[in-house]
Structure formats: structure tokens, C-alpha cells
């Protein structure tokens, strides 16, 4: 068996993140680490060390899927890993990220009021007002928290669904972070 590293326990971080955000939505900002670290590794190191070793979500999906046998382990549909779907999903995801930033900006500019809710699958509004006391921080800081947490929760839920239906890490086939980092690595590699 392979030796365990300290970073093999980062799946705990994945759970902790959602737990913290349940009690105080401002913790959602910590998710930016999971957003920036992979890009830094890819852009500076030209590697996928994040995906390959550090990603708590990948580890969690593996733990639940393989360890707890919650995955059917069936091969995922071929189109999951097709270039068209992967880049398409990345574009969609970035567009949703952009719209979340726009909403944050609108609140910052005073053109909209803070919405203390989580949006699941970009559609279902779930009240989340217990996790924030109005006025604690500027409204836009809170708005970003709700928006970012929604994005993290939605993508994790999609990850869990495809984990159950197919292989534990099926999500990784079209994970936007994975697609972005691999693309950066490929560009870097081609450039020399």
C-alpha cells in the first residue's frame, strides 16, 4: 500500500467548508483557495498537482464512492469526457461565475439589495438567512458569499449525483477547474 500524506486528508476540508458556511456564510470566501490554488499550480508549475493530490472534492468523491461503496462504478457516458461537453460546461460555469460577480457588483453599487439565499442548480432558491446577520459586513461581501457558496454546493451536488450513478470521480471528467488547469498545462507544454 502507498504511504499516506498529510494532504490525503483534505477531503475533510471539503466537508468542513460546507459545515462552516451553514453556520456563517462568510466562510464561503475560503472557497477561493480551491479556485486559485489549482490555477496557480497550473500556471506557475505547469502541473495538476492540485487535482492529482490536493483536491478535497476529488478525495471525498473517491472516499464516498469507493470507500463507502456509494457508487455503482459504471463507466460514465462517453460524452462526459468529450471535448465539446467539457469546454461547453466550462463556458457555462464561467458564465454563471460571471453573473454571480455581476450580482455582487449590483449589490455593491446599491442597485439591488442583499439576497440571503442559496441558489441550487442555478434555479432553486433556498433561504439561508440564519447564516448571516445583516450589516455585519458590507452587503456585497455577504452577497458574494451566498453566490459563491451556491456555486460550490451546486457543483458538489452534481459531483455526488454522477458519483452515485457512475464512477466515484466521474465529476472530474468535466469539472471546470480540471478542464481549466489541464488546458493551461497543455498550452504551457506546447509553448515549451
Amino acid at each position: 500500500m502507498k504511504k499516506n500524506h498529510w494532504y490525503d486528508y483534505l477531503w475533510i476540508w471539503s466537508i468542513l467548508y460546507f459545515a462552516l458556511g451553514f453556520f456563517n456564510i462568510l466562510f464561503a470566501w475560503l472557497g477561493l483557495i480551491d479556485f486559485l490554488l489549482p490555477l496557480i499550480f497550473a500556471a506557475a508549475g505547469g502541473n495538476k498537482f492540485f487535482c492529482n493530490s490536493l483536491c478535497g472534492r476529488g478525495q471525498l468523491l473517491n472516499k464516498l464512492g469507493s470507500g463507502c461503496k456509494l457508487s455503482r462504478g459504471k463507466p460514465s457516458p462517453r460524452w462526459f469526457s468529450s471535448k465539446g461537453f467539457r469546454y461547453g460546461f466550462l463556458v457555462f460555469f464561467l458564465a454563471m461565475f460571471g453573473s454571480m460577480l455581476l450580482q455582487t457588483y449590483t449589490v455593491a453599487a446599491g442597485a439591488a439589495s442583499l439576497s440571503e439565499a442559496i441558489k441550487l442548480f442555478w434555479t432553486f432558491r433556498v433561504p439561508w438567512d440564519w447564516a448571516y446577520t445583516a450589516g455585519f459586513v458590507p452587503d456585497w461581501v455577504a452577497q458574494f458569499s451566498f453566490g459563491f457558496y451556491s456555486l460550490m454546493l451546486t457543483s458538489t451536488l452534481i459531483g455526488l449525483i454522477v458519483m452515485v450513478l457512475y464512477r466515484p470521480r466521474s465529476w472530474c471528467a468535466f469539472c471546470p477547474m480540471g478542464t481549466m488547469t489541464q488546458s493551461i498545462c497543455k498550452l504551457k507544454n506546447r509553448a515549451g
Binding site: 502507498k2 495538476k48 487535482c51 492529482n52 493530490s53 476529488g58 473517491n62 469526457s81 467539457r86 466515484p168 470521480r169 472530474c172 471528467a173 468535466f174 469539472c175 480540471g178 478542464t179 488547469t181 489541464q182 498545462c185
Partner: peptide
């Protein structure tokens, strides 16, 4: 061409 470089196989 299909590999997403996730590293699941490595593990």
C-alpha cells in the same frame, strides 16, 4: 486525447 489528467488512476 480523452484523458483529463485527474490522476485517479495514479492513486
Amino acid at each position: 486525447g480523452r484523458c483529463v489528467a485527474c490522476g485517479a488512476c495514479v492513486k
